[in-house]
Amino acid sequence: MDGVPPRPKQLSCPIRPSWRRRPLLFRLFAHTTSSTDPLIITALPDFIDTVQQRTRAVKFGSLWFVDMGWVARCPCWPTRLADDGETSYRRIVAVFSDGDALLLERIRAGDDRALAAIYDQHAGLVYGLARRVTRDEQVARDVTQEVFTYLWEMPHRIDLSRGSLRTYLAMLAHRRAVDEVRRHEARFRAETASAAPELEDGPETRVVDAATRTWRTKHLAALLGLLPAEQRTAVQLAYYDGLTYVQVAKALGIPEGTAKTRLRAALARLRTLLTDEAREAIS
């Protein structure tokens, strides 16, 4: 990823090397009346563009997929556009996500290879998050199995208009992990107390350590670093340790209302930072 500038998470497109020779399908947030009309791209606020050229379009439900072979040459982020690179393409790339909708269509059709592909792309996130929240490897395995099995059984429950598949899986994994923590709270807390003093190190330390792996984690660490310390600590306790706002308040020795306010302010600040970056990315 050297040389690739950090981008907002939802704009990235992790592509395995073996895919590079294959046509890639990117979901466009697009609508059009027929396969021969120009596509109108309306993915981001205040952003409208028209695709004048394309090689092949596929429609599933209300979504169009456009096969742009040139993207494959620079799948993560096209710092260099291909031969026919035009401003419009640069902008299109800024609004695609990877083929989540197509993968979901395949899951609905019973294609277990699509599930394997989704697992390969996102298992690290699901497992890592579950392990971080539950601090129990076996429970993290169980949560991972549950999350992907749920996806396989209930693909129609996923609304991609609310975010990427990765976002959905993170949400689901976190919810399940937190449920596990709360279900077995006494046991988990006891284990935590006798385990490494992770709260003393702080999730931020581990986040910073992990940040060497990808620009995403570097990006996250940078964003967290922009939060006021009390907000950062509150959000870390709530998200990474699965604490309720009541528990956060107790852990920090602050009123519950203050804990709520800090959590809300932390998320609002992160949201603003992300939005600013998204605007910058397409400007």
């Binding site: 971080r132 395995r141 992907f148 099995t149 992300l274």
Partner: peptide, 30 residues
Amino acid sequence: ADLADVAALLAEGTVTDPPPELRSATLSCA
């Protein structure tokens, strides 16, 4: 949805390679 994105961004800091055998176990379970 944008709050979901923020929460998911927090999850990125936890990415960890799962145990290799978990893949086949998960796919079999599904």
